[in-house]
Design a protein around this nucleic acid. Structure first.
Lengths: 107, 107
DNA sequence: CCGTAGGTACGACACGCGTCGTACCTACGG
DNA sequence: CCGTAGGTACGACGCGTGTCGTACCTACGG
């Protein structure tokens, strides 16, 4: 299972990269919204309405993708992002729960 | 339960600060070694033999302390560090397990 | 065919952070 | 009393990174 265009395989996911990616509030928000949606739910990059420019959005999504947290597929004009829920849960059990807990009256 | 000299209370721990603190390999190593030891086990800063200068060690331990991951107490000449295991586990369940898994044949 | 919208690539900039050296402070031991 | 060892405080430096503007590319819709 090779890296298909920047998506690390399950065994290639590094904790350091994941934690660094999740250290940014914007990227954490993306993962949280993705996790709140249905499993396998696809969303465009722009649908998150992040308060930054387009180039910065691309940068954040690349960071998330290269950490192995999301998967991006070309869908015609847009590039859809999906949470790699099962992979992340298998490699780092409980991690997603920590993210979803944030911003739910807990933080 | 106020901040006693840089130690955030349980409710004051922020996920962002914790993830940022854990994004550094050296700090992750400190927490991992602490977690591998007995609960409440005290260790001096220098006992970790981090490959950096003294000033940098102080910086890393301050980051860990201000994130709420460790507690530091003056013990005569040295300053002992202890893992806030119960607090961390209560606030961010499963987080410590992710760290201990790293470097145990898993990563 | 042309315009527009979603994303990417590249370069630039500013701030943060990991690192260090040095000076200083506080025990502890001759 | 003086030296030494553990830590801290402060200032400095370099690189990483979050941010942006601009140019460009690729569908999709008149």
């Amino acid at each position: 299972m090779p890296d298909d265009e920047g998506h690390p395989a399950l065994a290639e996911m590094e904790l350091g990269a994941v934690l660094s990616a999740l250290a940014d509030p914007l990227r954490r928000r993306v993962v949280r919204e993705l996790a709140a949606g249905p499993d396998g739910g696809e969303r465009t990059c722009s649908s998150f309405a992040l308060p930054v420019g387009k180039a910065t959005v691309t940068h954040h999504f690349r960071t998330l993708r290269e950490a192995g947290l999301i998967r991006q597929v070309d869908r015609g004009n847009s590039r859809m992002a999906t949470l790699r829920r099962a992979d992340v849960e298998r490699r780092f059990p409980g991690l997603l729960a920590l993210l979803t807990a944030e911003g739910a009256g807990d933080a």
